[in-house]
Protein backbone atom coordinates (compact mmCIF):
# COMPACT_ATOMS: atom_id res chain seq x y z
CA UNK A 1 0.00 0.00 0.00
CA UNK A 2 1.24 3.49 -0.78
CA UNK A 3 1.88 6.03 1.95
CA UNK A 4 -0.53 8.88 2.40
CA UNK A 5 -1.22 11.81 4.64
CA UNK A 6 -4.30 11.74 6.82
CA UNK A 7 -6.80 14.38 7.79
CA UNK A 8 -9.74 13.88 10.11
CA UNK A 9 -12.20 16.41 8.75
CA UNK A 10 -14.19 18.37 11.32
CA UNK A 11 -16.61 20.06 8.91
CA UNK A 12 -18.08 19.38 5.48
CA UNK A 13 -16.56 22.63 4.23
CA UNK A 14 -13.12 21.61 5.42
CA UNK A 15 -13.45 18.19 3.78
CA UNK A 16 -14.51 19.74 0.45
CA UNK A 17 -11.81 22.39 0.56
CA UNK A 18 -9.07 19.87 1.28
CA UNK A 19 -10.30 17.54 -1.47
CA UNK A 20 -10.54 20.33 -4.02
CA UNK A 21 -6.95 21.32 -3.26
CA UNK A 22 -5.57 17.87 -4.08
CA UNK A 23 -6.72 15.89 -7.13
CA UNK A 24 -5.37 12.62 -5.69
CA UNK A 25 -7.12 13.02 -2.32
CA UNK A 26 -9.91 10.61 -1.46
CA UNK A 27 -12.65 10.73 1.12
CA UNK A 28 -12.85 7.68 3.33
CA UNK A 29 -15.69 6.51 5.58
CA UNK A 30 -16.42 2.77 5.95
CA UNK A 31 -13.35 1.98 3.87
CA UNK A 32 -14.59 -1.48 2.94
CA UNK A 33 -13.88 -0.94 -0.76
CA UNK A 34 -11.23 1.80 -0.79
CA UNK A 35 -8.89 0.01 1.65
CA UNK A 36 -9.25 -3.17 -0.38
CA UNK A 37 -8.39 -1.30 -3.58
CA UNK A 38 -5.41 0.32 -1.85
CA UNK A 39 -4.15 -3.10 -0.75
CA UNK A 40 -4.18 -4.15 -4.41
CA UNK A 41 -2.53 -0.87 -5.50
CA UNK A 42 -5.54 -0.09 -7.68
CA UNK A 43 -6.15 3.09 -5.71
CA UNK A 44 -3.09 5.06 -4.62
CA UNK A 45 -4.35 8.22 -2.92
CA UNK A 46 -1.68 10.51 -1.48
CA UNK A 47 -4.11 11.99 1.00
CA UNK A 48 -7.07 10.48 2.81
CA UNK A 49 -9.76 12.71 4.24
CA UNK A 50 -11.59 10.87 7.00
CA UNK A 51 -15.20 12.04 6.89
CA UNK A 52 -16.55 9.70 9.58
CA UNK A 53 -16.81 12.49 12.17
CA UNK A 54 -19.00 14.71 9.97
CA UNK A 55 -22.66 15.19 10.92
CA UNK A 56 -24.08 13.10 8.08
CA UNK A 57 -25.38 10.16 10.07
CA UNK A 58 -29.10 10.46 10.71
CA UNK A 59 -32.26 9.09 9.11
CA UNK A 60 -34.80 11.91 8.97
CA UNK A 61 -38.31 12.58 7.71
CA UNK A 62 -38.52 14.84 4.66
CA UNK A 63 -41.17 17.51 4.13
CA UNK A 64 -42.68 15.52 1.27
CA UNK A 65 -43.25 12.48 3.47
CA UNK A 66 -40.18 10.50 2.52
CA UNK A 67 -37.00 9.71 4.41
CA UNK A 68 -33.53 11.15 4.10
CA UNK A 69 -30.59 8.81 4.73
CA UNK A 70 -27.43 10.55 5.81
CA UNK A 71 -24.40 9.63 3.73
CA UNK A 72 -22.69 8.09 6.78
CA UNK A 73 -25.59 5.93 7.96
CA UNK A 74 -24.27 2.39 7.85
CA UNK A 75 -25.91 -0.22 5.68
CA UNK A 76 -26.76 -2.17 8.83
CA UNK A 77 -28.45 0.85 10.42
CA UNK A 78 -30.51 1.41 7.27
CA UNK A 79 -31.52 -2.21 6.77
CA UNK A 80 -32.71 -2.63 10.37
CA UNK A 81 -34.26 0.81 10.90
CA UNK A 82 -37.95 0.27 11.70
CA UNK A 83 -39.06 3.16 9.44
CA UNK A 84 -37.09 1.70 6.52
CA UNK A 85 -38.42 -1.79 7.22
CA UNK A 86 -42.03 -0.55 7.38
CA UNK A 87 -42.02 1.96 4.54
CA UNK A 88 -39.14 0.86 2.28
CA UNK A 89 -38.84 -2.91 2.83
CA UNK A 90 -37.42 -3.26 -0.70
CA UNK A 91 -34.40 -1.23 0.37
CA UNK A 92 -34.03 -3.14 3.64
CA UNK A 93 -34.23 -6.43 1.75
CA UNK A 94 -31.67 -5.44 -0.89
CA UNK A 95 -29.16 -4.28 1.71
CA UNK A 96 -29.58 -7.51 3.69
CA UNK A 97 -28.88 -9.43 0.50
CA UNK A 98 -25.49 -7.76 0.18
CA UNK A 99 -22.09 -8.35 1.79
CA UNK A 100 -21.86 -9.68 5.38
CA UNK A 101 -22.92 -8.36 8.80
CA UNK A 102 -19.36 -7.17 9.45
CA UNK A 103 -19.19 -5.25 6.17
CA UNK A 104 -22.68 -3.84 6.57
CA UNK A 105 -21.64 -2.49 9.99
CA UNK A 106 -18.88 -0.49 8.31
CA UNK A 107 -20.22 0.32 4.84
CA UNK A 108 -22.13 3.58 4.47
CA UNK A 109 -24.88 4.90 2.22
CA UNK A 110 -22.51 7.16 0.29
CA UNK A 111 -19.70 4.66 0.05
CA UNK A 112 -22.00 1.91 -1.17
CA UNK A 113 -23.01 4.11 -4.12
CA UNK A 114 -19.37 4.95 -4.84
CA UNK A 115 -17.94 1.44 -4.64
CA UNK A 116 -16.04 0.29 -7.71
CA UNK A 117 -16.62 -2.71 -9.92
CA UNK A 118 -15.32 -6.13 -8.86
CA UNK A 119 -14.10 -6.93 -12.40
CA UNK A 120 -11.10 -9.24 -12.00
CA UNK A 121 -9.01 -7.20 -14.45
CA UNK A 122 -9.82 -3.87 -12.85
CA UNK A 123 -8.57 -5.37 -9.58
CA UNK A 124 -5.28 -6.60 -11.07
CA UNK A 125 -2.79 -3.81 -11.90
CA UNK A 126 -0.69 -6.35 -13.82
CA UNK A 127 -3.33 -6.44 -16.55
CA UNK A 128 -4.65 -3.76 -18.90
CA UNK A 129 -7.98 -2.14 -17.98
CA UNK A 130 -9.65 0.88 -19.51
CA UNK A 131 -11.38 1.70 -16.24
CA UNK A 132 -8.15 1.67 -14.24
CA UNK A 133 -5.82 2.95 -16.98
CA UNK A 134 -7.73 4.53 -19.86
CA UNK A 135 -6.57 3.43 -23.30
CA UNK A 136 -4.94 0.15 -22.26
CA UNK A 137 -7.77 -2.12 -23.40
CA UNK A 138 -10.41 -4.41 -21.92
CA UNK A 139 -9.20 -7.99 -21.39
CA UNK A 140 -12.57 -8.93 -19.87
CA UNK A 141 -14.34 -8.72 -23.23
CA UNK A 142 -12.14 -11.59 -24.51
CA UNK A 143 -11.23 -13.22 -21.21
CA UNK A 144 -13.00 -14.39 -18.10
CA UNK A 145 -16.27 -12.56 -17.85
CA UNK A 146 -18.72 -14.62 -15.83
CA UNK A 147 -19.60 -11.67 -13.58
CA UNK A 148 -19.71 -9.07 -16.34
CA UNK A 149 -22.39 -6.99 -18.02
CA UNK A 150 -24.86 -7.99 -20.71
CA UNK A 151 -26.58 -4.60 -21.12
CA UNK A 152 -25.17 -1.17 -21.93
CA UNK A 153 -21.62 -2.38 -22.50
CA UNK A 154 -19.14 -0.63 -24.77
CA UNK A 155 -16.04 -1.72 -26.67
CA UNK A 156 -14.09 -0.14 -23.82
CA UNK A 157 -15.63 -1.80 -20.76
CA UNK A 158 -18.05 -4.56 -19.78
CA UNK A 159 -17.85 -4.12 -16.00
CA UNK A 160 -20.86 -4.14 -13.68
CA UNK A 161 -21.72 -1.98 -10.71
CA UNK A 162 -21.83 -4.43 -7.79
CA UNK A 163 -24.24 -2.72 -5.37
CA UNK A 164 -27.51 -4.26 -4.21
CA UNK A 165 -28.55 -1.14 -2.29
CA UNK A 166 -28.31 1.03 -5.41
CA UNK A 167 -30.57 -1.34 -7.36
CA UNK A 168 -33.35 -0.93 -4.82
CA UNK A 169 -32.75 2.82 -4.74
CA UNK A 170 -33.05 2.91 -8.53
CA UNK A 171 -36.46 1.24 -8.34
CA UNK A 172 -37.49 3.66 -5.60
CA UNK A 173 -36.26 6.64 -7.67
CA UNK A 174 -34.09 7.94 -4.86
CA UNK A 175 -32.34 11.29 -5.12
CA UNK A 176 -28.65 11.66 -4.30
CA UNK A 177 -27.80 14.96 -2.64
CA UNK A 178 -24.23 16.18 -3.10
CA UNK A 179 -22.35 19.25 -2.01
CA UNK A 180 -19.27 20.68 -3.64
CA UNK A 181 -17.31 23.82 -4.35
CA UNK A 182 -20.04 24.73 -6.86
CA UNK A 183 -22.85 24.38 -4.31
CA UNK A 184 -25.47 21.71 -3.73
CA UNK A 185 -26.96 19.42 -6.35
CA UNK A 186 -29.78 16.88 -6.28
CA UNK A 187 -29.08 14.03 -8.70
CA UNK A 188 -31.82 11.52 -9.54
CA UNK A 189 -30.25 8.11 -8.99
CA UNK A 190 -30.92 7.19 -12.63
CA UNK A 191 -28.47 9.96 -13.58
CA UNK A 192 -25.97 9.23 -10.81
CA UNK A 193 -24.16 6.20 -12.22
CA UNK A 194 -23.30 6.16 -15.91
CA UNK A 195 -22.68 3.69 -18.70
CA UNK A 196 -19.05 3.10 -19.68
CA UNK A 197 -19.16 4.45 -23.24
CA UNK A 198 -15.75 5.81 -24.18
CA UNK A 199 -14.91 6.78 -20.61
CA UNK A 200 -15.24 3.74 -18.37
CA UNK A 201 -12.83 5.37 -15.92
CA UNK A 202 -15.74 7.59 -14.87
CA UNK A 203 -18.26 5.66 -12.76
CA UNK A 204 -20.68 8.44 -11.95
CA UNK A 205 -21.61 12.07 -12.51
CA UNK A 206 -20.04 13.48 -9.34
CA UNK A 207 -17.19 15.94 -9.65
CA UNK A 208 -13.91 15.85 -7.71
CA UNK A 209 -14.37 17.62 -4.40
CA UNK A 210 -18.08 16.93 -4.23
CA UNK A 211 -19.33 14.91 -1.28
CA UNK A 212 -22.55 12.93 -0.95
CA UNK A 213 -24.52 14.36 1.96
CA UNK A 214 -27.65 12.22 1.82
CA UNK A 215 -29.92 10.01 -0.23
CA UNK A 216 -33.57 11.00 -0.28
CA UNK A 217 -36.28 8.37 -0.57
CA UNK A 218 -39.51 9.67 -2.13
CA UNK A 219 -42.74 9.04 -0.18
CA UNK A 220 -43.92 5.99 -2.14
CA UNK A 221 -41.98 2.98 -0.87
CA UNK A 222 -44.09 0.29 -2.63
CA UNK A 223 -44.18 -1.48 0.72
CA UNK A 224 -46.99 -3.93 -0.15
CA UNK A 225 -45.88 -5.31 -3.50
CA UNK A 226 -42.16 -5.59 -3.83
CA UNK A 227 -39.30 -8.07 -3.93
CA UNK A 228 -35.53 -8.15 -4.18
CA UNK A 229 -34.48 -11.35 -5.90
CA UNK A 230 -30.72 -11.93 -6.00
CA UNK A 231 -29.12 -14.84 -7.84
CA UNK A 232 -25.46 -15.65 -7.24
CA UNK A 233 -22.88 -18.42 -7.11
CA UNK A 234 -23.46 -19.12 -3.42
CA UNK A 235 -26.47 -18.36 -1.27
CA UNK A 236 -24.91 -15.66 0.88
CA UNK A 237 -22.03 -13.24 0.87
CA UNK A 238 -21.51 -13.09 -2.90
CA UNK A 239 -22.10 -10.46 -5.53
CA UNK A 240 -25.13 -10.79 -7.77
CA UNK A 241 -24.91 -12.54 -11.09
CA UNK A 242 -28.38 -11.14 -11.68
CA UNK A 243 -30.63 -9.32 -9.26
CA UNK A 244 -34.08 -7.80 -9.71
CA UNK A 245 -35.77 -5.13 -7.62
CA UNK A 246 -39.47 -5.10 -8.42
CA UNK A 247 -41.95 -2.60 -7.00
CA UNK A 248 -45.61 -2.57 -7.98
CA UNK A 249 -48.69 -0.62 -7.02
CA UNK A 250 -51.67 -2.94 -7.40
CA UNK A 251 -55.27 -1.78 -7.71
CA UNK A 252 -58.03 -4.42 -7.83
CA UNK A 253 -55.69 -7.06 -9.21
CA UNK A 254 -54.35 -4.71 -11.87
CA UNK A 255 -50.89 -3.17 -11.97
CA UNK A 256 -51.33 0.59 -11.56
CA UNK A 257 -47.63 1.37 -11.49
CA UNK A 258 -44.48 -0.68 -11.95
CA UNK A 259 -40.81 -0.13 -11.24
CA UNK A 260 -38.11 -2.59 -12.13
CA UNK A 261 -34.34 -2.33 -11.69
CA UNK A 262 -31.72 -4.95 -12.46
CA UNK A 263 -28.36 -5.48 -10.78
CA UNK A 264 -25.33 -7.50 -11.91
CA UNK A 265 -26.07 -6.90 -15.58
CA UNK A 266 -24.75 -3.41 -16.34
CA UNK A 267 -22.40 -0.59 -15.38
CA UNK A 268 -25.30 0.90 -13.41
CA UNK A 269 -28.60 -0.29 -11.97
CA UNK A 270 -30.59 -1.01 -15.13
CA UNK A 271 -33.97 0.63 -15.62
CA UNK A 272 -36.17 0.38 -18.71
CA UNK A 273 -39.11 2.82 -18.47
CA UNK A 274 -40.69 1.48 -21.68
CA UNK A 275 -40.79 -2.01 -20.20
CA UNK A 276 -42.31 -0.65 -16.98
CA UNK A 277 -44.99 1.12 -19.04
CA UNK A 278 -45.91 -2.24 -20.59
CA UNK A 279 -47.15 -3.32 -17.14
CA UNK A 280 -49.27 -0.28 -16.38
CA UNK A 281 -52.99 -1.05 -16.33
CA UNK A 282 -52.33 -4.74 -17.00
CA UNK A 283 -53.34 -7.78 -14.97
CA UNK A 284 -50.43 -9.59 -13.32
CA UNK A 285 -49.96 -12.51 -15.67
CA UNK A 286 -46.88 -14.54 -16.46
CA UNK A 287 -47.34 -13.94 -20.20
CA UNK A 288 -47.15 -10.21 -19.68
CA UNK A 289 -44.12 -10.59 -17.39
CA UNK A 290 -42.36 -12.63 -20.07
CA UNK A 291 -43.07 -9.95 -22.66
CA UNK A 292 -41.61 -7.33 -20.32
CA UNK A 293 -38.50 -9.45 -19.73
CA UNK A 294 -38.06 -9.95 -23.48
CA UNK A 295 -38.31 -6.21 -24.01
CA UNK A 296 -35.69 -5.44 -21.34
CA UNK A 297 -33.29 -8.02 -22.75
CA UNK A 298 -33.84 -7.47 -26.46
CA UNK A 299 -30.46 -5.76 -26.88
CA UNK A 300 -28.61 -7.90 -24.35
CA UNK A 301 -25.25 -9.24 -25.47
CA UNK A 302 -23.58 -12.23 -23.86
CA UNK A 303 -19.85 -12.88 -23.79
CA UNK A 304 -17.95 -16.14 -23.50
CA UNK A 305 -18.70 -16.91 -19.85
CA UNK A 306 -21.80 -14.85 -19.15
CA UNK A 307 -24.27 -15.52 -21.97
CA UNK A 308 -26.25 -17.58 -19.44
CA UNK A 309 -27.12 -14.32 -17.71
CA UNK A 310 -29.56 -13.39 -20.48
CA UNK A 311 -31.81 -16.35 -19.82
CA UNK A 312 -31.20 -16.11 -16.07
CA UNK A 313 -32.26 -12.45 -16.11
CA UNK A 314 -35.34 -13.27 -18.16
CA UNK A 315 -36.51 -15.87 -15.65
CA UNK A 316 -35.52 -13.71 -12.69
CA UNK A 317 -37.62 -10.81 -13.99
CA UNK A 318 -40.67 -13.06 -14.39
CA UNK A 319 -40.21 -14.60 -10.94
CA UNK A 320 -39.61 -11.22 -9.27
CA UNK A 321 -42.69 -9.67 -10.84
CA UNK A 322 -44.75 -12.67 -9.72
CA UNK A 323 -43.39 -12.37 -6.17
CA UNK A 324 -44.11 -8.64 -6.08
CA UNK A 325 -47.60 -8.97 -7.54
CA UNK A 326 -48.58 -11.65 -5.05
CA UNK A 327 -47.12 -9.76 -2.10
CA UNK A 328 -44.71 -12.57 -1.25
CA UNK A 329 -41.26 -10.98 -1.33
CA UNK A 330 -38.13 -13.12 -1.49
CA UNK A 331 -36.82 -13.94 2.00
CA UNK A 332 -33.17 -13.05 2.52
CA UNK A 333 -32.93 -15.77 5.19
CA UNK A 334 -34.66 -18.73 3.57
CA UNK A 335 -33.18 -18.60 0.08
CA UNK A 336 -35.62 -21.00 -1.54
CA UNK A 337 -37.33 -19.25 -4.42
CA UNK A 338 -41.11 -19.54 -4.38
Amino acid sequence: MNRFSYLRATSIDEAMREAAADPTARFIAGGTNLIDLMKYNVERPTRLIDITRLPLNGIEETESGGLRLGALVTNDETAFDSRIQDRYPLLASAIQAGASPQLRNAATTGGNLLQRTRCYYFYDPETPCNKREPGTGCPAAFGRNRIHAILGTSDHCIATHPSDMAVAMAALQAIVHVRGPGGERAIPIADFHRLPGEHPEIDNTMLHGEIITSVELPPDGFSRNYTYLKLRDRLSYAFALVSVAAALRMENGTIAQARLALGGVAHKPWRDPAAEAMLQGQPATEDRFRAVADHILKDARGYQDNAFKIDLARRAIVTALSQAASGTPQSQIDKRIQ
Partner: peptide, 26 residues
Protein backbone atom coordinates in the same frame (compact mmCIF):
# COMPACT_ATOMS: atom_id res chain seq x y z
CA UNK B 1 -6.75 -9.72 4.40
CA UNK B 2 -9.51 -8.47 2.06
CA UNK B 3 -12.72 -8.59 4.09
CA UNK B 4 -13.84 -11.85 2.55
CA UNK B 5 -13.27 -14.48 5.26
CA UNK B 6 -14.06 -12.94 8.65
CA UNK B 7 -11.04 -14.42 10.49
CA UNK B 8 -10.08 -10.90 11.61
CA UNK B 9 -13.48 -10.07 13.14
CA UNK B 10 -13.33 -7.99 16.32
CA UNK B 11 -15.92 -5.92 18.18
CA UNK B 12 -15.56 -2.15 17.77
CA UNK B 13 -17.87 -0.18 20.05
CA UNK B 14 -19.85 -3.38 20.41
CA UNK B 15 -20.30 -4.04 16.70
CA UNK B 16 -18.52 -6.73 14.72
CA UNK B 17 -16.13 -5.46 12.06
CA UNK B 18 -13.42 -6.84 9.81
CA UNK B 19 -10.27 -5.42 11.40
CA UNK B 20 -8.37 -5.97 8.14
CA UNK B 21 -10.57 -3.37 6.45
CA UNK B 22 -10.00 -0.52 8.90
CA UNK B 23 -7.24 2.01 9.40
CA UNK B 24 -6.34 2.17 13.11
CA UNK B 25 -6.11 5.96 12.97
CA UNK B 26 -9.79 6.17 12.03
Amino acid sequence: DHGQCGACTVLVDGRRLNSCMAFAVM
